[in-house]
């Protein structure tokens, strides 16, 4: 009984908040072009569901492309940094600098240089999201148990063998943690990049729909797009968490 209560608690809480929101909007007579109630948002979504779903798909495509690129880049750099103290010293400060540079500043420059909308958005989103994967995987590689490293050495393992058979598999749990964090960052990156740089040519994503609805004063539609974005973020986080759970379970059973 308690487990059941635990499961439905977030849903129950959500329903209560939505009901309170709708009542507040009714009671204060707030017009829907200032703050729409949940019902207005739902109807706005239903009216433009085709367009909003296509926008969601577009944003998700950029997000997943960026996540894949971030995973590749993060792992490659982590391996490079683990292999050589010189490479580590060379790469580390640049990785950190790239991470803290505000995307709003560099996104327009990237759009200018790359000149292809999809690629530019993916690059922006990758820049924001690769660092957690890099940092976590590097930590995992560094934490490879010393005794196992000795064992490999005693059995004459080559550096490749040690990397592929010991270090990388050993770092998989850390990598998955980094991936989970990076998933939502990639979504944020895709949205910010689109906001800042504008999109065109490639099918518009949710960020553009939010802006467009704002300019056209279609406020309930704007909120509907934002809700979709939030749901997408939650779904990505849950999916990556689920992936982490499944992989780790299979690993050790």
């Amino acid at each position: 009984m308690n487990r059941l209560l635990e499961r439905i608690a977030p849903v129950g809480f959500g329903v209560a908040v939505l009901a309170a929101w709708q009542c507040a909007v009714w009671a204060t007579g707030t017009p829907k072009y200032v703050v729409p109630g949940p019902w207005d948002i739902v109807t706005a979504y239903a009216a433009s569901s085709g367009e909003l779903n296509a926008a969601l798909l577009s944003t998700l495509t950029v997000t997943f492309a960026a996540l894949a690129a971030a995973a590749f880049l993060g792992v490659v750099l982590a391996v490079a940094m683990a292999a050589s103290v010189l490479l580590r010293a060379a790469i580390q400060p640049w990785a950190v600098a790239l991470q803290v540079t505000p995307l709003v500043a560099i996104a327009p420059l990237i759009i200018l240089w790359v000149n292809q909308a999809f690629a530019a958005l993916v690059i922006c989103a990758t820049i924001i999201s690769f660092f957690p994967i890099l940092a976590n995987t590097a930590a995992g590689l560094a934490q490879t148990p010393a005794a196992l490293l000795d064992l490999f050495k005693l059995n004459g393992a080559s550096r490749w063998q040690t990397l592929l058979l010991l270090r990388l598999p050993s770092a998989v749990p850390n990598f998955l943690t980094g991936l989970r964090i990076s998933g939502t960052l990639a979504l944020v990156g895709a949205v910010v990049a689109e906001f800042v740089a504008g999109s065109g040519g490639f099918a518009s994503g949710l960020a553009y729909r939010i802006l467009e609805a704002g300019y056209r004063l279609e406020i309930p539609k704007m909120f509907a797009a934002m809700v979709l974005l939030a749901l997408a973020g939650v779904a990505i986080y849950a999916a990556l968490g689920g992936l982490e759970y499944l992989v780790l379970r299979r690993r050790e059973r």
Binding site: P108, I111, L112, A117, A120, A197, G198, S199, G200, G201, S204, Y208, L211, E212, Y215, R216
Partner: peptide
């Protein structure tokens, strides 16, 4: 064109001259 233009006179030009959204390039105010 900018995002707010896309929500206004771009729609007119599209209708009159048969432009399509695939022609759009990002406008960086630069």
């Amino acid at each position: 064109v900018s995002d707010d233009t896309r929500a206004s006179w771009w729609l007119y030009l599209k209708a009159k001259y048969g432009y399509s959204d695939s022609q759009l390039k990002p406008y960086g105010f630069s």
